[in-house]
Amino acid sequence: MSRGPRIAVAVFPGTWSERDFAHVGALLGWEVRLVWHTETDLGSADAVVLPGGFAHGDHLRTGAIARFSPVMRAVTEFAAEGGPVLGSCNGFQILCEAGILPGVLLRNDHLAFRCDWQALRVESAAGTWLEELAAGDVLRLPISHGQGRYYADAATLDELERSGRVVMRYADEAGRVSDEANPNGSLRSIAGIVNERGNVLGMMPHPERASEAEVGGTDGLRLFRSLERWLTAQPAVAERGL
């Protein structure tokens, strides 16, 4: 690679995970640019990240106001053109509110904010962010949310499952999915989904907080390595000098 991937990280008032993404991006040799929510241009980004936090204070509903931030027009276009987009935690909530991904994230069934390490079973390695993974893999990533209970109507859930778009579920360390291993009451233990094309991934866990051995785990790196692998295989991206 003659240069590292260019990653635009959107920052809303109340976002809190953008510097963790920037830190991990620097470790990986990425060119990370923080993009304030009023900006309308993502530059020549190869991928876009919507990080965790509490955009606009989570007022009304999580992601409800962020969805109308000017930067989201650019993100919506970028996603529609097939550009890789990762929404983690609040980013997932914003993607759902924006209608880029189906469903919604509701208050945790036990009403408490849950901050912990969580095991996840990879259900399907569909899409840009999961190429280095395989169905059945177990990841260990931090979760940190009060509103992560995934909900969609039964028809939508069935369609997501049928098309392999439920990419990860909450599980125990052995990869067993159960109500006990579900930290927030998500329907069908859903922790992450992708769009039809596979370029947009929404997930409640935080891969950027598990990308260095020093912080207790490196499973998050597997998603970022997947992105690098996918980008390297794109002629259009290669032309721009990756």
Binding site: L60, R61, C96, E97, P102, V104, Y151, A152, D153
Partner: peptide, 8 residues
């Protein structure tokens, strides 16, 4: 457009 999310 904003006040309610029809999904839920």
């Amino acid at each position: 457009q904003l006040l309610a999310n029809p999904v839920m």
